[in-house]
């Protein structure tokens, strides 16, 4: 373990006995000779807000894939609320409260916004194996769906097919599905990427208002959003954590600026943000 992949600097708010929401230890992944994740250590306390940043190709999405179970690690260990989940499938991890979103919206073509949210609610309440029940008669589902729809501002389009709404609204639907699962840990992979500015504000508001007990790890390129959201920032480069600190520390650190922010600053100019 290197000095840079240090323990969390944010205070753990709970009693010492409570295990962290998510603890990643020595997580590595290689494809052939290429190491895409190198001895990553990361701990998220309950209610933590951590941003994961790094240049393109740093291995951010790979890390999320490893944690969510889409990829099997070469070595290392992942604990969710004190329970070792390293050997569990993506399905089992999701059931235990480790929920993720995708960088590019992966939604169900032809289904309405409401059906997306209902599916997640039904899954959480273990009812997706009911063959003859009418979803419309389930008052609890209807209430909770309505509450989520109101909270995320999707009421006007709740019965519109997902492929007929804006990209920003699709991202919100994706977040709504994640919230419907009542996660312990939420991994957000660039939730506002590609969303036009006028819709991005809504997503930022939703992220600000995420329930306080959920630990959130967010991959994000937009530094304004990172500073607004995160209590702690983790910088990833070439599959390795090169820095962990508060947003203020990150902004001051010369090494990070050189390795990452400078590069990204130029990129930002190019994209005209």
């Amino acid at each position: 373990m290197t000095a840079l992949s240090a323990a969390p600097t944010a205070p753990i708010l709970l009693a010492p006995a409570a295990p962290p929401a998510l603890a990643v230890e020595g997580l590595s992944k290689s494809f052939g000779g290429l190491t895409v994740a190198n001895e990553i250590d990361l701990t998220l306390a309950r209610g933590d807000r951590v941003a994961l940043i790094g240049p393109n190709g740093a291995g951010k999405t790979t890390f999320v894939n490893l944690v969510s179970g889409l990829l099997a690690p070469s070595s290392g260990r992942i604990d969710l609320a004190g329970e070792d989940i390293t050997g569990l499938s993506d399905v089992e991890r999701a059931r235990r409260g480790l929920v993720r979103s995708f960088q590019v919206s992966r939604l169900f073509h032809g289904l309405s916004v409401r059906e997306h949210i209902e599916l997640a609610l039904l899954q959480r309440t273990k009812r997706t194996n009911q063959f003859f029940a009418a979803i419309g008669r389930m008052a609890d589902i209807a209430d909770e769906a309505a509450e989520l729809v109101e909270r995320l501002g999707l009421a006007d389009i709740v019965d519109t097919r997902i492929d007929a709404i804006s990209y920003g609204q699709q991202r919100l639907t994706d977040i709504a599905m994640s919230l419907a699962l009542k996660p312990k840990v939420l991994l957000l992979d660039e939730p506002a990427a590609g969303v036009p500015t006028r819709d991005a504000g809504r997503i930022l508001d939703v992220i600000d208002a995420l329930p306080a007990d959920i630990a959130v790890l967010m991959i994000e390129h937009d530094m304004d959003l990172v500073f607004r959201f995160a209590a702690r920032v983790v910088v990833l480069a070439s599959g390795r954590i090169i820095f962990t600190g508060t947003p203020a520390e990150i902004a001051k650190d010369e090494q990070v600026r050189a390795a990452y922010l400078g590069v990204y600053g130029r990129e930002e100019e190019r994209h005209g943000r």
Partner: peptide, 16 residues
Amino acid sequence: SPFGLKLRAIGRDPGR
């Protein structure tokens, strides 16, 4: 039904 909703979703994107 709930199962049918899940099935339609699987048809679009089983990984999700």
